[in-house]
Design a binder for these strands. Structure first.
Lengths: 221, 221
DNA sequence: AAACATTTGTCCGTATGTATA
DNA sequence: ATATACATACGGACAAATGTT
């Protein structure tokens, strides 16, 4: 019996890619905390690679806004201000709203069905209080729409902003609520009706509401 | 008489930065043409540095969408589709419109005066058919608004998208018209009235109009 | 099919500049 | 202020992978 070889054309996994993913993950989940100073030699040892792929990864993370580099001086994880979320969500809301509009004429039956089942999974996660799971499914939901919109510029910007949202979630600056479930359903309904303007408006509100909810949460404390 | 030393705290200029700026400029102005294969050793020789800063620059340019890297295979300048502009302008319009909204409560007399003089310079450039100059002043105009909006996420995304706009201009995919002058004036007036919704709408139209104009231009040929 | 040439990815040493005593 | 220690930026060599003859 022949060894079953991988028939999927698997993209070569470089050390840089591995390092980048790991470092980004660590910054997002808080393993590397805001403001922490990053020593490339140390990181290289931990990840079992040399300093080069580490340096390259850090530079990419800088463009994404996860680290801050002071040439010749130091490299550190970017801080999280109390209201980073106030800066982060408006542009994300605007781009997601635009995506919904652009997606309208490209929607198929299959896509709408996928949105429906995804929102059902989202509902279950929220109701059973699996908030991290809910966050990821919520991302999936919005990702479907962005993918259908089929705009490479939007795609890469949203991807980066979403990563920041995940980070804020881990730092307890994001809360997910039941209201999203119903809003998602409204969006699906409006998409069926091909009502781009309204779906865009609801999409925006869906994201901006999270700002208020965070501020309410703070005030309760 | 003592040698007049530079009192401005000039940020250290790294080889990577220099290389990055030069390469980006070359891609924007067409010196490096769409689809061209990039050999880092060759570029290193031309710029008089080693491969390291070149490679790092290319990776940053990849994130910005100016080059495409195929790990282990090749690196090349991204292509320009006939309708790249159709993908590029909608997200830029959305972010600029958002910027205008966010800027409203932060506007000062000085800022508005600056917008007015900038638009006057823009008008002169357009009327004397100095189109490249007009493009740069137009950028200044919008940059003022983005700066006042004071949102780091928007700032970096707009900066990158603007660079792509410049590139399309060099490849004759962008045209500037007199209509922008009057639209800018309208925006200034609405900002004085603190009318965020309307200024946002006009800002969007101002950018999206360029898509139609490009398509009209094509049809005339 | 195999050896070659080319190009890319990685490693590590060194020099330059920065912070601290 | 000077010297010391240290982190970073860059260079050049080696290794691995690609595609070419």
């Amino acid at each position: 019996m022949p060894v079953p070889t991988d028939h999927i054309k698997t993209k070569r996994k470089t050390a840089k890619e591995t390092a980048f993913n790991q470092l980004q993950q660590w910054i997002i989940d808080g393993t590397l905390y805001p403001g922490e100073k990053l020593n490339d030699l140390e990181l290289a040892k931990v990840l079992g690679v040399s300093r080069t792929p580490i340096r390259e990864s850090l530079q990419l993370l800088e463009v994404q806004g996860f680290v801050e580099m002071f040439p010749g001086k130091a490299t550190q994880v970017t801080g999280i201000e109390r209201d980073s979320i106030t800066d982060l969500l408006p542009p994300l809301a605007a781009l997601q709203a635009l995506s919904a509009e652009l997606a309208i004429p490209r929607l198929t039956e299959e896509t709408i069905a996928l949105l429906e089942t995804t929102n059902e999974r989202f509902a279950i996660a929220v109701q059973t209080r699996n908030y991290f799971s809910a966050l990821k499914i919520d991302e999936e939901f919005h990702q479907i729409i962005v993918d259908v919109a089929n705009n490479p510029y939007i795609l890469s910007m949203v991807e980066s902003l979403q990563a920041h949202v995940r980070r804020l979630f881990f730092h307890n600056s994001i809360v997910l609520t039941k209201e999203s479930i119903e809003e998602h359903n409204k969006m699906i309904q409006l998409m069926k009706e091909r009502n781009g303007l309204k779906v865009s408006a609801i999409m925006r509100d869906n994201w901006l509401r999270a700002i208020d909810e965070f501020h309410n949460l703070k005030d309760e404390k």
